[in-house]
Design a protein around this nucleic acid. Structure first.
Lengths: 146, 146
DNA sequence: TAATTTTACTACTTAATCGATAGTAAAAAT
DNA sequence: ATTTTTACTATCGATTAAGTAGTAAAATTA
């Protein structure tokens, strides 16, 4: 196949991987809510259709933003976890939240206050906290497992 | 009309406005290359179709990320300029560049080095510089004009 | 152990959006 | 006066998304 990238621009390249309507929301659910299963993603507020969710998870796995595996004591559930490459999307997600909070509340007034996420004045500490939190979740999910 | 937003999540809300395949690339061209006209956007590396460009510019204008106007001495060219709301997207664009540079170069090796953009170790200064640069461009375009 | 429920999908149909190209009208340049 | 430029619109086929139903295997419950 031809290159999947439109150009050599890093912004365009990033958008070719995560610039669709759903990918960043799935990654958001993983990073900020610890969601791990198909069912959990299906239940999120925006209502993604199963076919699209399925395609997106496959795409994200192919591009190594997430992994898919089963836990030893459950052969039914697939567990989706972020890779480091995926965890490093946290700053992008955070900047989207900040911009939205400041500029789109007029259009979407039901948006929850940004203070519920954490202390924005410490941006990099907040991002690092979310990332370390997620790394701990991975350990809990995979590490201490009979 | 019903709300144009899928949910009250700030991330989803941001993506409902700028989460398509092209908007951020148009905004990139404005912010980092000073592009201002339909023709200039048409000529960019990724090759956006005129119908889509037209629709996107209309959408971005409706959502007040850009303005559209004619200069007194040229009744033909439309001049598109970022609003403050649009200029404030700079941090998101910067984080996309940083993530892409670090994580997607393996897949798209032709990507230019990030050092060409500026000194990343001074992230917020770099962003502020780009933004102030753009504000100066607006002044040059509109202010000192016979 | 058998029946029910849960999970992770696939399949299908319809609707919306995208993409490529051609064409047009008005302004500007020659 | 003619040509070129600019900013589009129109059209049509291709791709993607949305919504719903259905299925197979695993897990749970009776």
């Amino acid at each position: 196949m031809r290159s999947k990238f439109r150009s050599t621009c890093p912004i365009a390249t990033a958008l070719d991987i995560i610039g669709d309507k759903w990918s960043l929301l799935i990654l958001r659910d993983m990073l900020t809510s610890g969601k791990k299963t198909f069912k959990e993603f299906s239940e999120s507020q925006e209502g993604i259709a199963p076919g699209i969710l399925s395609a997106r998870l496959k795409w994200l796995e192919e591009n190594e933003l997430i992994t898919k595996q089963k836990l030893p004591h459950n052969q039914k559930e697939n567990i989706y976890l972020l890779t480091e490459k995926g965890i490093e999307l946290a700053p992008i997600i955070m900047e989207l939240i900040i911009w939205s909070d400041k500029n789109l509340r007029v259009q979407n007034p039901e948006m929850p206050s940004i203070s519920q996420i954490g202390d924005i004045s410490n941006k990099s500490a907040l991002i690092a906290g979310i990332q370390n939190n997620y790394r701990r979740l991975i350990q809990e999910t995979l590490g201490i497992n009979p």
